[in-house]
């Protein structure tokens, strides 16, 4: 199971990769493994405001559905069009091609409460 060092994690198994005040959000390798084959990712339109810890979308897998929670507050500035046609990239490349939304982070202080790779690793018990 991959837990890269260059992203921050939530207890709900999302990750966020930060560059400046931009953040890319997706789900972790652990999460995609637990969900199984992802068939649909429902995310809000560009311009939508996200609130830290609140659900902003859903991931449909064959066996189960899961909410997506915002790691930090922000505004959606870009959607990953690849996952609409090929949702299986979430399984194949959860930290790369499988990103879901890009946001403009509202307050970078929010990042302080997120987990680093070591803390996330102990959370998943792997």
């Amino acid at each position: 199971m991959k837990i890269p060092e260059n992203v921050k994690y939530t207890k709900d198994h999302e990750w966020i990769r930060v560059e400046g005040d931009s953040g890319w959000i997706g789900i972790t390798d652990y999460a995609q493994g637990e969900l199984g084959d992802v068939v649909f990712v429902e995310v809000p339109k560009v311009g939508t405001k996200l609130f830290k810890g609140k659900s902003f979308g859903t991931i449909e897998a064959v066996k189960a559905v899961s909410d997506l929670y915002a790691p930090v507050a922000g505004e959606v500035v870009e959607l990953n069009k690849v996952i609409q046609d090929s949702p299986d990239v979430v399984n194949k490349d959860p930290y790369g091609e499988g990103w879901m939304v890009k946001i403009k982070i509202a307050d970078k202080n929010d990042l302080g409460s997120l987990l680093d790779a070591a803390a996330y690793k102990s959370l998943t018990g792997k």
């Binding site: 199984g36 084959d37 068939v39 064959v62 066996k63 299986d88 399984n91």
Partner: peptide, 9 residues
């Protein structure tokens, strides 16, 4: 066993 390689596959 609920799955091996993945349900769709």
């Amino acid at each position: 066993p609920v799955q091996y390689s993945g349900i769709i596959d």
